[in-house]
């Protein structure tokens, strides 16, 4: 084939994207899987196959197990609040009107602000001595907390930040979905003298179910992969109480140079998220109403 013919074929249009995808996504993933079965040292050049030894090693490592457990807890905790809060806010803010539109924009703002700005802001508010959160707790007659500096509240503190940052996004997605529900459905419910609660459970919720499945899955995936706020706000501490999987991979690979073990953790992360998505889709297949 002539060069000019190749340039005119559809393959020329997709070539740059395919090339970048292979080099920067597929290859690193393949290398991760490969290295998870090997003992790799990029400094000395040592590299040999060691089977499942890396996996055995991390599953007997207390720090890894702690990070894994924290990530699962964090994933469920954040999702359990950010999705229902988002739905509640959406139901409240559905329909147009100046104040509603304004409030929609306000609750979405944290989503477009960088995690670093959000992190510094909340570190300021969570300051044990001068922070405004302890002041508010005081007003409510509650004892002050040490927030990020206490191993019993550090993970909770990070979860609060994550929920605050993501609720508005969930709300906006649900509002978009609500506005696609045909008005006739509500009209007929009204004619049937349905109560608001019945209308909600028989019309609104079933119509929303595909989008809720998406939100729950996306929220679980992003919460499980949280890194920025861990690195910036707590560095996994105190005593690994807020250490999450991705930060563990980062520390194991970058600070301890244990590439093989870090990659075994990365493969576990990929597999775990694949299982989470599959389970959500399977549960949804039975419950959700796709139109």
């Amino acid at each position: 084939m002539k060069i000019s013919a190749v340039l005119r074929s559809p393959y020329a249009l997709i070539l740059p994207a395919i090339a970048l995808c292979l080099i920067f996504s597929v290859a690193p993933t393949a290398m991760s899987v490969r290295d998870s079965f090997r003992s790799v040292d990029y400094v000395s050049g040592a590299d040999k196959f060691i089977g499942l030894a890396n996996y055995r090693s991390i599953f007997t490592d207390d720090v890894f197990l702690r990070a894994f457990k924290n990530s699962v807890l964090f994933m469920f905790g954040v999702t359990a609040f950010s999705v229902p809060f988002g739905v509640a806010a959406a139901l409240f803010l559905d329909k147009n009107g100046f104040i509603r539109n304004f409030t929609q924009s306000v609750i979405f703002t944290p989503h477009i602000v960088s995690f670093i700005a959000v992190a510094t802001l909340w570190m300021f508010m969570m300051d044990p001595r001068y922070g405004i959160l302890n002041y508010i707790l005081g007003l409510l007659g509650l004892p002050p907390l040490r927030w990020l500096m206490d191993s019993s509240t550090s993970l909770l503190s990070l979860a609060i930040v994550a929920v605050w940052k993501t609720t508005g996004f969930n709300a906006l997605i649900v509002i978009a979905a609500l506005q696609k529900i045909p008005a006739e459905l509500y009209e007929s419910a009204r004619l049937d003298r349905s109560t608001p609660a019945r209308t909600f459970f028989h019309i609104t919720l079933p119509t929303l179910s595909p989008i809720l499945v998406f939100l729950v899955t996306a929220s679980m995936i992003s919460a499980f992969g949280t890194f920025d706020i861990v690195k910036f706000m707590t560095e996994g501490g105190p005593r690994n109480s807020s250490n999450l999987m991705v930060y563990w991979i980062y520390r194991t690979g970058f600070l301890h140079f244990q590439i093989g073990r870090a990659m075994a953790g990365a493969v576990i992360l990929i597999l775990f998220l694949a299982v989470v998505s599959a389970v959500n889709l399977a549960l949804a297949g039975r419950r959700a109403h796709y139109q």
Partner: peptide, 21 residues
């Protein structure tokens, strides 16, 4: 399907290999 690969594998799993690359 290949082009959509990125939607399945989270960035957080491959960053070390990206650094090495």
């Amino acid at each position: 399907c290949l082009v959509l690969f990125d939607l399945i594998v989270p960035a957080q799993a491959i960053f070390l290999q990206m650094y090495i690359l």
